[in-house]
Design a protein around this nucleic acid. Sequence first.
DNA 1: AACACGGGGAC
DNA 2: GTCCCAGTGTT
Length: 371
Amino acid sequence: MSDTPTPVLPPEAFQRRLLDWFDTHGRHDLPWQRDRTPYRVWVSEIMLQQTQVTTVIPYFERFMARFPDVAALAGAEQDEVLHLWTGLGYYARGRNLHKAARVIVDEHGGELPEAVEALAALPGIGRSTAGAIVAQSRGRRAVILDGNVKRSLTRLHAEPGWPGRPAVERRLWALAEHYTPHERLADYTQAMMDLGATLCRRGTPECGRCPFADVCLAHARGEERRFPESKPRKALPTRATQMLLLRDAEGRVLLEQRPSSGLWGGLWSLPQFDDAPALEAWLDAHAPGSELAPAWAPFTHVFSHFRLEITPRPARIARLDSIGESRRWYDPARPDALGLAAPVKRLLASLAPFTLEAPPSPRESVSEESP
DNA sequence: AACACGGGGAC
DNA sequence: GTCCCAGTGTT
């Protein structure tokens, strides 16, 4: 992977296609597109983080009616700001907005800073939001890279990797920088966001209407849906357990019922132990003289939030002192109508009667949801 | 039921 | 740098 990706078009051609599309199909009547002051654009951009335009509009109108400028916002109580935020979600955005308003009054004479770096130093404003404020309210050249732009650019260039990864993000910023014009900055940034929001959507992109369909690398491969790649699932933590497969002379297996709440709540399972010594201690205490056979090969059961490595420990009982509450003997050849934990069910189904031998086929991992 | 989303903060 | 989070909407 080279350090700078190859653009699919020169900047001028990209801008012309995008702006021509925007002039006829873009959004031109959003509340923050009227009276585009830095303050109004700032508030709209914060509200638009993680939130769709149609949801934001009524909140924006109410907010502007109550806090028409930075001074009004800075002078308000946080509670009132959050009250107007109720229902928008991500309330840290509202708290940061309020905090930043006070910083702007205290340290910037009540005016939003003009420089991207100074804006991005304010709470709640990052690099992309700062760029959007500068481009939209001052018409000065600034680069944005929000989720919509990331999606369009990864598709257009078939950029591999999850855009949240710093290495991928760097490449996307380089592309965004490459295409950004020196004129019509407000329209251009709005157009980029509109393209992603209305055409180059996550689930069902409308490539038939896209001005870049003929140069889009993902479209050429018919793989629009594969971009951008999703965040990699982090490796699940693994826990280990020993499962006692204790059988009597008739081939029946000792089961015990799980506690009614928690993992496998109320289901029947094999007696479980954290390690071999714990299992052997239990056998000595409750079934002395039992013949413990060699462990079978461990297999893995996958839950939604961890992997359980199960080591089956077959044993033949000599005598059982007390079966205790919540335990029973179970005949695998004549299954009762019992709720069995999934891997236990699988294990019992593979048992041959009257043997402690491991089943012939190798055991592979099972995939299943946790309760 | 999982994922996407922009920025901040812990480590 | 990496990981995790917050709340709602979408898939």
